[in-house]
Design a protein around this nucleic acid. Structure first.
Length: 938
RNA sequence: GCCCAUGUGGCGGAAUUGGUAGACGCAGCAGACUCAAAAUCUGCCGUUCGCAAGGGCGUGAAGGUUCGAUUCCUUUCGUGGGCACCA
């Protein structure tokens, strides 16, 4: 009986479905374990071999945990709202719901072929009204909450209203509040809501007709499509994620994410601690006769933000952002023309140019001076575009000896530089050290900069000219998209006030539209449907929520997917709790992961769930790149020259389908069939021989070698490999194990189908331990020998360790070694093989189930218990040998003889170098280790 | 520029805590079986000296710590990723 993987896999996949083998219950006495994949966006292109990498890893781990006695939740769903479906609708007129439905069906069929253990009963789709009903509901929770700065948590906005009604706040009394109009009250509340609306500068992309989030903009271009992006003022919804900045940072300490992932999030949040301080401003007016200048003190004060208040005596100039409100007030008449010219120049420059020419130094002196409060020095105030209006106070104090940008600016405009760090400053470049001893620094002289920071801030606070201040780089998250295919906002605008829908009115379903094109004045397509927009209560919000809305909480819905009365029953979320293992790519490091962490914290604050970090452990799978193949066509001909000979000709390099290349050797016939234009292609082979167009035979020994390059996997580069085809050709089990065998899950690597044969051979070899191709069944019920049990238990130990540490590639190797050894020993014993099958189940579930049943077992191997490793079988003996050391007799040497490596023995010694064994067996080499351990080679 | 990874045969990679470097697989070479092919099996497979036994050198490079370093430290180079006027 041969290994007929097609039959086996089909049969078992059907059986799993019929028996609901993977159904998961919320009621179980077992401990729980929650394994989650980042759910996919169901694109029209289907899966390529890169997608399943993480899914296979999570599937292996889920099955492993189930064998280990856990009740495992391992669901799958679809992030089905999003731009591509809408772009496609725009082009073809097909409703996104239709194409999405179709794409999901394709994805599910592809996923099922690989044999994943998903409980499809728990599937979620973000575009399903029964799902987005709760996305809208959570949005309303955000809308109806504020961040309490004393308790550092979200609270119902009703609490805040009550406080205003009874106590007022620092800006108004309770009486004043109660006298405000509804609109005035709502405007004040809007400033506190966690989901709020305001006019803001947004990233407007003309080409896409929509607003993009910061992380969707790369270098001034849209991430998708690479269209130019500009600033535009619009009423937008935002999430007040900045209020959670500190807790998002603190939470990172409690989760098991990779260091680089945490670093990326910290970087994005960009917390910096420093001080805000005020400076007085003076203007000099050229006087008419004496030539002396006349001094005017200005009323306004200049507030700057700095992280280095210790460098206050090194401030040689101030820089305001060109947009800074003080610019107009402080500019002297003499400088007005120059400043206006500079402002005009800045305005003419797009975001892109500013970023592209970041190194170019520009700026303009305002004519005004700030006064250093400690030594009374007059400090010229400049404006320059390198200072950003949106960060800190939009104004900085420049310390050229300590900051490279300030240094470059000072050099460029010939501003004299004060050195406050003595020998640490070489006059050639700035030195941002904190270790220098301060000089020329008044009351800070002689102090280490590190110590001076605190002392300076204290002094500043004492004098009432500034205070400690923490700044964040992160901005509140834009939450509106001028798009159709997203969740509609459950909001109606009445007299400029946003009125939320009642929970009973949810879901607010997406209405049908005739066109997916943008609405008037930058609004989304929904604005075109007047009958929908104009409800009796007022005008509906026409923008929709961004892609990350639905994905910010989907892990909760899996726990209780069909609940119609709440987003997730408290009992279910209490049972399943945090996601124990979350697997996905690094591309969501700052977007999805930050948003879902925030939502979780809000839901926790409001008492709706019992934990505030969604993901306990995050495992980042690497990207699988494509390995492209190239052929070289001699320009103007239909002749192709092999890689080694291409330099002798003038050639065009063409991508060739990687699937018709064996390693690097082109399959000539397949190539001729690939595209009609190549049907009569002629070849010059690697050895220089030549093949005529018509000659397809007799080229056995002549090889056409292709060029190779690693690129992103994409259809247009003909380097995609379809998992369906591999499953068809080698089987899902081979495919799964090969993907794992390729290397560590976390590593990015190019796909290469070549090695898959090796894994396939291994599974066939395994099969032959049970069945002979001719004789049929060969397994027997004999007792396993010591040697065989030793092989088995070494494998148990290794597989358990490898799986626990997600080292799936070495686990596959372990299986290969085990099967090779058992085959060498001609071991066909049920006692040994049965255990091996249990170990193998997570990796190759189909063949394991089949052989398990062949051994006479009923039901699924998943319900078997993971075998226990018996250490006694590995360590054969522990004895004490007397040993002669430097001629003297020593005893008490414990010898742990590990039969895995009979040539090597590890010893634990008490003293110096061992020379000889007393019992005549002289070791070849003895390596002594500090009173501890040595290696002995016999 | 800053931050984080990472560098091992022809290739993917292993070496888990500082202890036989190159497991396992691919490719390659030689052989067995076969009329032949496929399948399967056996041996070789970092480099160098040697008939061999055996030795020298080898984990990007240079130093250091250690009895011992792919592993730890310093410097440096290459590759990949993230951030990029954030004061």
């Amino acid at each position: 009986m041969e290994y007929d993987f097609r039959k086996i896999e089909q049969a078992w996949q059907n059986k799993w479905k019929e028996n609901k083998t993977y159904a998961v219950s919320n009621e179980s006495a077992k401990p729980k374990y929650y394994v989650l994949d980042m759910f996919p966006y169901p694109s029209g292109a289907g899966l390529h071999v890169g997608h399943p990498l993480g899914y296979i890893a999570s599937d292996i781990y889920s099955r492993y945990k189930r064998l280990k006695g856990f009740n495992v939740l391992h669901p799958m769903g679809f992030d089905s709202f999003g731009l591509p479906a809408e772009q496609y609708a725009l082009e073809t007129g097909q409703h996104p719901a239709t194409t999405t439905e179709k794409n999901i069906a394709t994805f599910k069929a592809q996923l099922d072929k690989i044999g994943f253990c998903y409980d499809w009963e728990r599937e979620v789709r973000t575009s399903d009204p029964q799902y987005y009903k709760w996305t809208q509901w959570i949005f309303l929770q955000l809308f109806n909450s504020y961040f309490c700065n004393t308790q550092k948590k979200a609270r119902p906005i009703a609490d805040l209203i009550k406080k205003y009604e009874t106590k007022g706040n620092k800006n108004f009394t309770a009486e004043q509040w109660n006298a405000f109009t509804k609109k005035e009250q709502e405007d004040i509340l809007m400033n506190r809501r966690l989901a709020f609306s305001k006019y803001g500068e947004v990233n407007w992309c003309e080409a896409l007709g929509t607003v993009l989030a910061n992380d969707e903009v790369v270098n001034g271009l849209s991430e998708r499509g690479g269209h130019p992006v500009e600033k535009k003022k619009m009423r937008q919804w935002y999430l007040r994620i900045t209020d959670y900045a500190d807790r998002l940072l603190e939470g990172l300490e409690t989760v098991d994410f990779s260091e680089s992932m945490k670093e990326m999030q910290r970087n994005w949040i960009g917390k910096s601690e420093g001080a805000e301080m005020e400076f007085g401003i003076v203007k000099h007016h050229a006087s008419d006769m004496s030539g002396d200048s006349q001094l005017t003190t200005h009323n306004s004060r200049l507030t700057v933000y700095t992280t280095r208040p210790d460098t206050i005596f090194g401030v040689d100039f101030m820089v305001l952002a060109p947009e800074h409100e003080l610019v107009a007030q402080i500019t002297t008449p003499e400088r007005k023309a120059a400043i206006d010219q500079y402002l005009h120049y800045v305005k003419s420059r797009s975001e892109r140019e500013r970023l592209a020419e970041a190194k170019t130094i520009t700026g303009c002196f305002t004519g005004a001076y700030a006064i250093n409060p400690f030594d009374g020095r007059e400090i010229p105030i400049w404006i320059a575009e390198y200072v950003l209006a949106g960060y800190g106070t939009g104004a900085i104090m420049a310390v050229p000896c300590g900051d490279q940008r300030d240094f470059a600016f000072a050099k460029h405009f010939d501003i004299p530089i004060t050195n406050i760090i003595g020998g640490h400053f070489n006059g050639e470049e700035a030195n941002a050290t904190k270790d220098a001893v301060l000089e020329n620094s008044g009351f800070l002289n002689g102090l280490f900069m590190k110590d001076a920071i605190g002392i300076a801030v204290n002094k500043i606070e004492e004098l009432g000219i500034g205070k400690r201040k923490v700044n964040y780089r992160m901005r509140d998250a834009g939450f509106s998209r001028q798009r159709y295919w997203g969740e509609p906002f459950p909001i109606i605008w009445t007299d400029g006030v946003a009125i939320p829908l009642d929970a009973e009115e949810l879901p607010l379903e997406l209405p049908h539209v005739d066109t997916y094109g943008p609405g008037p004045e930058g609004e989304g397509p929904l604005a075109n449907i007047t009958e929908w927009v104009n409800s009796p209560q007022g005008r509906r919000e026409t923008s929709t929520m961004p892609g990350y809305a639905g994905s910010s909480w989907y892990f909760l819905r899996y726990m209780d997917p069909n609940n119609e009365t709440t987003f997730c029953d408290r009992k279910a979320s209490h049972y399943w709790n945090q996601v124990d293992l979350y697997i996905g790519g690094t591309e969501h490091a700052v977007g999805h992961l930050l948003y879902s962490r925030m939502w979780t914290k809000v839901l926790f604050d409001l008492g709706l769930i019992g934990f505030e970090e969604p993901f306990k452990k995050l495992l980042n799978q690497g990207m699988i790149q494509g390995s492209s193949r190239f052929v070289y066509r001699i320009a103007g001909t239909n002749q192709f020259v092999s890689y080694g000979k291409k330099h002798e000709y003038d050639v065009q390099t063409l991508h060739v389908d990687v699937n018709i290349v064996d390693g690097v050797e082109l399959q000539i016939d397949a190539f001729r069939k690939w595209k009609p234009e190549f049907a009569d292609a002629a070849f010059i082979f690697e050895d220089g021989t030549f093949s005529l167009a018509c000659n397809t035979g007799a080229i056995k020994d002549m090889k056409y070698i292709c060029g190779v390059e690693t690129e992103k996997m994409s259809k247009s580069k003909y380097n995609t490999v379809n998992p369906d085809e591999l499953c068809e050709k080698y089987g899902a089990d081979t495919f799964r194990m090969y993907e794992m065998f390729l290397g560590p899950v976390e590593a990015s690597k190019p796909w290469d189908t070549k090695g898959i044969e090796g894994v396939h051979r291994f599974l066939r070899k395994l099969w032959r331990l049970f069945n002979d191709d001719l004789k049929g069944k060969v397994w027997n019920e004999d007792k396993g020998s010591d040697a065989e049990l030793k092989v088995l238990h070494r494998t148990i130990k290794k597989i358990e360790e490898d799986t626990e540490r997600f080292s799936f590639n070495t686990a596959v190797s372990t299986f290969m070694i085990c099967v090779n050894e058992l085959a060498d020993m001609k071991c066909h014993k049920k006692e040994v093989l049965e255990k091996l099958l249990i170990l193998l189940t997570p990796y190759a579930p189909h063949i394991a189930e089949d052989l398990w049943n062949q051994l006479g077992n009923e039901g699924s191997v998943l319900d078997a218990a993971f075998p226990t490793f018996n250490p006694a079988l590995l360590v054969e003996l522990t004895k004490e040998y007397p040993v002669s050391i430097n001629g003297k007799l020593r005893t008490s040497i414990a010898l742990a003889l590990d039969l895995e490596q009979p040539a090597v023995e590890q010893l634990v010694l008490q003293n110096e170098i061992v020379q000889k064994w007393l019992e005549g067996k002289a070791p070849k080499k003895i390596i002594f280790v500090k009173n501890k351990m040595i290696n002995v080679v016999i």
